[in-house]
Structure formats: C-alpha cells, structure tokens
C-alpha cells in the first residue's frame, strides 16, 4: 500500500516533467510572431480603423501570428504606452501610427535598440538615421491618379472641382495625383481645389461642393472624411457626377458616383507583418504599398455611369502604372 502510493507519486512527477518538456519544446518550435499595433485614434472612431482591426484579427488566425491592439489616442499616453510594450519584451514588432506617435516612438526606440519598431505613414524626418524604426504607408498617388484619369475622360465642361479635407501632407498627395491624372487624359482641363479645414463638417462640405458646381465644375471629387459626405450630397443635389475617396455612397448619389479610391489597410498591414516575419525588416527606410499589392485601388461601384470605353482606357493606364511606366510626382501643380 505504502509502496504503491510512492510509485504513483513518482509516476505523476515523471508525467508532469515530461509534459512540461514536451510543452516547452512545442512552444519553442512554433512560437508565433507577436505584433503590437498602437493606434492613435479610438478604434471605433473610423471605418477604416475598424476594418483594419477586424481584418488584422482574421489574418492573425490565417497566417498564425499574434496581434495586440492598443489605443493611445491621448498625447499624454503616447510614450508610456509604447514604452510599456517595449519594456515587456514580448513583442517581435511594435507598430505605431502617424506623426502623432513619431516623437514618442523615436524616443522609446532609442532606449530599446533591440526592439523592432515600425510606424505607419508618419513622414519621419531623416528616417535613415534610426536603426530600429521602419516606416510603411499606402501609395495614395496611384489611386488618386486613376481617379483623375476617370474624371478627365468624363468631364464635358472641362472643369472639375476637388474638396480636400485640409491643407496637409496626405491630402495634398492625393490632390497631386488627382491633378496629374486629370491632365493625362485631358490636358486642357481646369481643376479647382478647395480645402474645408475639417474632416467632420458635412455642412461646410456641401457649401463648398455647391460653390464648385456654381463655378461651372461638372464633376466634383472629395477626399475629406465626413466633410466629403456633404460634398457628395451637393453633387447629388445639382445632379453632377462625384468621385469619392475611401467609401462608396450608393444611397446618397444614386448612380452619380463615378468611382472611389479605396484603401485596404488590413491588406497592407498583412503584407508588412509577413515581410518582417520573413526577415525583410529594413529599418531607416519607407516601404510603400500600392495597387500592385492590392492595398488600394480605384473601384467602380455597381451603378457607376462610367462607360466601358472609358473603363478600358483607365485599365490601360492602370497597367502602365503597374509596369512602372508612369511616374507620379507627390508635388501639387497648384492649390
């Protein structure tokens, strides 16, 4: 009796040790790649961010990596939150967002030279001097260029208008692409640019849209978030075609939407995470994802009034972009 219990005890001990060994070896063999993404906006504040987060979670399952989403939307929380992630030493890659996080990321990256950092579209100055920060971003020029090509072919009066959210880098890049695209298909085009100075003021967007229409623009475009919805409503009110950014507006425009330059952040993130995982981490550089990676595209909605002949021409230009035959400058032609 006495003997048997001690035997059982030994057996249990051996079993436990064996299990621990097996567990740890299995753990070491398939340790998943761990990524933390620090968002500078609350996740529910924008549609693209929600799409990004849900897409990332899905891809994490499919591609077998671990993703942790952290919100650091308050400037006092930028550095402590990024630092806490780096201090944990748990993550293989920490991704932060936009110029909001740039100073905090730079200062934390200095303290943790062995931690890999990446930053989304921050325009970090002299990025080449940082040994553990890589920047990656969407190519907004290509889709804007295609949008311009479509509008250039579709305009009858030869005058088109663009409502931009604000006079800032990202929007001006879009407008630069748009202006060059317009001139590719319609060299004599006149294009007007207005800035709303707000991404959440549909009323202002509608006033600006109406004023563009009253100045003779027969196509209105807008890259301005919520302000852009107002511009779309203006286009619907005066019955002019509209070029959208980021989303489609079927219920507002009822067949007046020519197309939309849409972005797939989750696809870009997937590409980037997998490239780092494959050992292609290139600190001090900027990686750009465009239509070749399907991270963005110019899409025609189902009820788009764009005829097949125009679509064919645009497809040809799209192919030229993919083949690298067209160089698009990020500089505005005019404001």
């Amino acid at each position: 009796m006495y003997d048997r219990t001690s035997k059982t005890k030994t057996m249990i001990a051996v079993l436990v040790i064996a299990m621990m060994l097996a567990g740890s070896s299995a753990f070491a063999a398939s340790r998943r790649f761990r990524v933390a993404y620090v968002s500078c906006y609350p996740v529910d504040s924008a549609e693209w961010l929600q799409a990004l987060v849900s897409g990332l979670k899905e891809y994490a399952k499919k591609d077998n990596f671990e993703i942790k989403i952290v919100e650091a939307s308050d400037s006092s929380g930028y550095e402590p939150k990024i630092q806490a992630l780096a201090e944990s030493g748990y993550y293989d890659l920490i991704i932060t967002s936009y110029d909001f996080h740039a100073p905090a990321t730079i200062s934390v990256a200095k303290k943790f030279p062995n931690q890999k950092f990446a930053i989304l579209d921050a325009g970090v100055r002299n990025i080449e001097q940082y040994k553990n920060i890589q920047e990656f971003k969407l190519d907004r020029l290509e889709t804007a260029y295609l949008a311009g090509c479509v509008a250039g072919l579709m305009t009858k009066t030869g005058k088109v208008g663009m409502v931009g959210g604000a006079d800032m880098g990202v929007i001006n890049e879009i407008i630069a692409g748009w202006q060059q695209g317009l001139r590719k298909t319609n060299p004599k085009v006149v294009d007007l640019v207005v800035y709303a100075n707000s991404f959440s003021d549909p009323s202002k967007g509608k006033e600006l849209g109406l004023s563009l229409a009253s100045k003779g623009c027969d196509i209105i475009a807008s890259a301005a978030g919520g302000t852009g919805v107002g511009a779309a409503q203006a286009a619907a009110e005066v019955g002019k075609p509209f070029v959208a950014w980021d989303v489609h507006y079927p219920d507002v425009l009822h067949g007046l939407e020519l197309g939309s330059a849409v972005n797939y952040f989750e696809v870009m993130f997937r590409h980037y995470i997998n490239s780092v995982r494959a050992g292609n981490y290139r600190p001090g550089t900027v990686r750009v994802y465009g239509i070749a990676e399907r991270a963005c595209d110019f899409e025609f909605p189902v009820d788009s009034p764009v005829p097949d002949s125009v679509r064919a021409e645009v497809e040809k230009i799209r192919q030229e972009i993919l083949d690298g035959k067209i160089r698009i400058s990020p500089d505005l032609l005019h404001k």
Binding site: D201, S203, Q233
Partner: peptide, 10 residues
C-alpha cells in the same frame, strides 16, 4: 445635410 457626423458642430 440630413445626416449626423461626429463633431459636426465644428
């Protein structure tokens, strides 16, 4: 505009 947008009072 017949819509609501967050922060639309601007």
């Amino acid at each position: 505009t017949n819509m609501f947008n967050e922060g639309m009072t601007n």
